[in-house]
Design a protein around this nucleic acid. Structure first.
Length: 558
RNA sequence: GCGCCCGUAGCUCAGCUGGAUAGAGUAUUGGCUUCCGAAGCCAAGGGUCACUGGUUCGACUCCAGUCGGGCGCACCA
């Protein structure tokens, strides 16, 4: 298949050649080829002439004229126009655009897969909830954004490893153990003796009951039997962590999110990785003893004050195992790592990066990358929802999935820029009507499926269909939208912005619905019929591909 | 007080590394089905892009400051 429909890169190359001829002394000038907002401005526009106006000291329109004259011939270009201050607007021939239909139908689920990742490895850590309670809506956002990001990076040609880190060591786990122990002894959060920091949710009582009933839970490929002994703190701790890990796994499964690696904080201690990292940091000379504690001079690496590594009581602060953990990631060969976390963890970034720099093992500055998502508030009947019976003080992910379904939950949590605070409107997500974008997109897919089913022909017929009849406004708009899809993947992967997929799909669905209302497909004229069916089959394919990236289903009937 | 994020239509939000007349959904108003799915389509109204200054041929976009909202500022994790 020799047909070109990556017109953007194609034009970029042509303009680069023209630049060499017109302005050999200014070949470093950045070339930008973009899609204009208005159709009257062509399919692609280049601002190179305006960029060159200053170095060449000539009017941009004259330079544009020269660039056009110097541009190598291309049979995909219908015409070029100079517009505005000196834009070169390029119009692509409809014939060239039509090739995309066969391109999509031939590559199928692979359409949109590009090679910018070049098979390089990237480790993406997300969710990483502590095993101290059920997953809540904030974790859900992390799961939806992180999973979609992984899918996008995979489509962009990266070799992605999904990783979940859980803190099964430290003070909060002591707190969990203690809360379960007290519950086992019949003490409730209402009791005056209940500790201030104790976990209060109903799930603590569930764990205590299971422990007393000597249940067995299966989590992380191991079976943990409860002894029922209320005095055995270690046994309670072990059981409680396993119990909550199982619950979180069930939540993730319900959300259709899978991980390749589960990393345990406790293992970093038992494997000696924490000790080793500490030794390296001391050897690096960036540490010092003060007030019976060991400090890391993070101010050497841009922090605003130094941080304690080893406390007076001999324990390490949180970021020390975190540094050890990231050293381990580095050694596992992840030259690129992306951590998707809630924005409330922001303060650790500087510390972890500083620790990694202090190790002096060749880790580049600014490694790893972070994607931080802002807080989620949940709305019902226009009121903010805070209370969940199970969790005590927040909305669980399971509640949301049960109430509005997996598709809508994933869509709504992934469809916003991670930097923006998110309002999750339960009533909107539940509504099976025109105000719900998930159904709007799925409906487009179901409509196409229905038409194709009614036609009843074979898919391979469409692969050979003559598509030169596709030239109406609606049809060329859809062709261009399909052409844009691979560039969308590239953009979303570069910007680490999975929400762009959701917006694209809404636009694609809108273009289709508009086309649908103005056209009939199962018409008498066989050539027209097959051409239109081929087009909408390609649209359905791209909707499927895009929804798959979001982890949302593409039903044939609704 | 310091750091990070945000501020775009009544509401929820897009706006790509600066580009041409700032967009969508929803809500409001008015239209469209003898025919493939009306969970749809078409149209209208709705804006000081928080504010001020700067950089630029060009600023919603970049920089500085102000105001407002969120999060974080432990020898917690």
């Amino acid at each position: 298949m020799s047909a070109v429909f990556n017109f953007k890169d194609h034009l970029y190359e042509l303009f680069a050649l023209a630049l060499r001829k017109v302005a050999p002394d200014a070949i470093q000038t950045e070339i930008v080829v973009e899609r204009p907002k208005l159709a009257s401005h062509g399919d692609y526009a280049c601002n190179l002439a305006m960029q060159l106006a200053k170095p060449l000291r000539k009017p941009p329109r004259d330079i544009a004229q020269a660039l056009i004259a110097a541009l190598p011939a291309s049979d995909v270009i219908e015409k070029m126009e100079i517009a505005g201050a000196g834009f070169i607007n390029v119009f692509i021939t409809t014939a060239a655009k039509q090739h995309v239909v066969h391109g999509v139908l031939q590559t199928g689920a692979g359409y949109g897969h590009i090679r910018i990742g070049a098979g390089r490895r990237v480790g993406v850590e997300f969710v990483s909830a502590n095993p101290t309670g059920p997953l809540h809506v904030g974790h859900g956002r992390g799961a939806a954004v992180g999973d979609c990001l992984c899918n996008v990076l995979h489509a962009a040609g990266w070799n992605v490893t999904r990783e979940f880190y859980y803190n099964d060591a430290g003070a909060q786990i002591d707190n969990l153990m203690n809360s379960v122990r007290l519950r086992s002894l019949g003490i409730t959060p209402d009791d005056p003796d209940w500790p201030e920091a104790g976990y209060r949710g109903d799930y603590i009582a569930d764990i205590a009951r299971a422990y007393l009933d000597k249940e067995t839970v299966e989590a992380d490929d191991q079976h943990v039997h409860a002894s029922g002994d209320v005095q055995d703190a270690e046994a309670i701790r072990h059981f409680a962590v396993a119990y909550l890990r199982r619950e979180q796994d069930l939540d993730l499964r319900a959300f259709a999110v899978e991980f390749d690696v589960f990393a345990l904080e406790s293992a970093l201690y038992t494997d000696g990785k924490v000790e080793e990292a500490v030794k390296r940091l001391i050897a690096s000379g960036h540490t010092y003893e003060q007030d019976d504690a060991l400090w890391l001079r993070t101010t050497d690496f841009g922090d605003d004050k130094d941080r304690v590594m080893r406390k007076t009581d001999g324990g390490y602060t949180y970021f020390v195992p975190d540094v050890a953990y990231h050293l381990d990631k580095w050694r596992r060969g992840f030259t690129r790592v992306i951590n998707e976390q809630g924005a409330d963890h922001h303060s650790t970034i500087t510390r972890v990066r500083a620790g990694l720099q202090a190790l002096d093992v060749g880790i580049p500055q600014g490694w790893p990358d972070y994607v931080l998502h802002q807080m989620v508030t949940v709305l019902r009947n226009g009121q903010e929802v805070k209370i969940s019976k199970r969790a005590g003080s927040y909305v669980t992910l399971r509640d949301l999935i049960d109430e509005v379904g997996r598709d809508a939950t994933r869509y709504f949590l992934a469809a916003r820029h991670p930097d923006s605070q998110l309002v999750f409107d339960i009533d909107l997500a539940k509504s099976k009507s025109n105000d719900n974008p998930v159904y709007y997109i799925q409906y487009a897919h179901a409509r196409i499926s229905a038409v194709l089913a009614q036609w009843g022909g074979e898919r391979k017929t469409l692969l050979q269909t003559n598509v030169t009849l596709l030239d109406s406004d609606h049809e060329t708009a859809l062709l261009q939208k399909l052409i844009d899809y691979p560039q969308l993947i590239e953009h979303a992967a570069q910007e680490l912005a999975p929400h762009l997929i959701a917006f694209y799909l809404k636009e694609l669905a809108a273009d289709f619905h508009s086309y649908y209302n103005g056209s009939r497909f199962l018409v008498e004229d066989e050539a027209v019929k097959l051409a239109r069916l081929a087009l909408i089959a390609a649209v359905a394919q791209v909707i499927r591909n895009g929804l798959a990236l979001l982890g949302v289903s593409a039903p044939e009937k609704m």
